[in-house]
Amino acid sequence: MHLLTATADRRRPFRLSDLPYDEHWEGYVLGQDDEHRYLWIWQGFNIRVIAVPHGDTTGYDHAWCYPRDPATVEAAIEQWDPATEDEPLGWHKRATTKPRRAPHRDRDRAYNQPRCRHGDYLHGTCRTVNCPDERDDRRRALPESV
């Protein structure tokens, strides 16, 4: 994966104005890997990071919504390694149904654990009250009654 926010030795801070702008998607290109281009899109109430298959102009495979706080998104993208990490951190909504799976996810098992639909790890606590995924996970962990 080549994120435009990365250098050969480490990740570096970036400014959106320094990144290429995609006219079709109306967003900034963050980088690409063998399967997807990653873009930052400003939306009404949030910022969305999307994974668009190369050559596709009709839809995206994965998307994550963030609060409308550029610093939060920048920090998440700067730390994310799409080759080994399924999804970036810090999002509050997965805008697509299936979670992304990194091609080399076995290299970072601690990072790639099941998450709820709000981005929190299922073994932790979701920041959303009454998260249905968290309730379902707790139910599965209960011993069956006789």
Rank of each mutant, 00 (worst) to 15 (best):
M1L: 14
T5L: 02
A6V: 08
A6T: 10
T7Q: 15
A8H: 12
A8P: 06
R11N: 12
R12H: 10
P13R: 11
P13E: 08
P13D: 14
R15A: 15
S17I: 13
P20A: 04
P20E: 00
P20W: 07
Y21I: 04
H24G: 04
Y28P: 01
V29L: 15
G31V: 03
G31H: 08
D33M: 00
D34Q: 14
H36Q: 04
R37T: 12
L39C: 00
L39M: 03
Q43A: 10
Q43F: 06
Q43L: 12
I47D: 00
I50W: 07
A51F: 06
V52K: 04
P53H: 07
G55H: 03
G55A: 11
D56G: 02
D56R: 14
T57A: 09
T57E: 13
T58D: 13
T58R: 12
Y60P: 05
Y60K: 04
D61L: 03
H62M: 01
A63H: 01
W64A: 00
C65D: 14
P67V: 09
R68S: 08
D69Y: 02
A71D: 15
A71E: 15
A75K: 11
A76T: 08
Q79N: 10
W80L: 06
T84A: 12
T84G: 00
E85I: 15
D86W: 07
E87N: 07
P88E: 06
P88I: 03
L89F: 11
W91S: 03
H92K: 08
R94T: 04
R94M: 08
A95P: 01
P99G: 00
P99K: 10
A102H: 08
A102D: 06
P103D: 03
P103E: 03
H104C: 11
H104P: 01
R105S: 14
D108Q: 11
D108P: 02
D108M: 09
R109W: 00
A110K: 13
Y111K: 11
N112T: 06
Q113T: 13
Q113S: 11
R115T: 04
R117A: 02
R117Q: 14
R117S: 13
H118W: 08
D120V: 05
Y121C: 02
H123F: 13
H123P: 01
R127I: 08
T128Q: 12
P132I: 06
P132N: 09
R135Q: 09
D136W: 10
R139H: 10
R139I: 02
A141Y: 05
P143C: 02
P143M: 07
V146T: 11
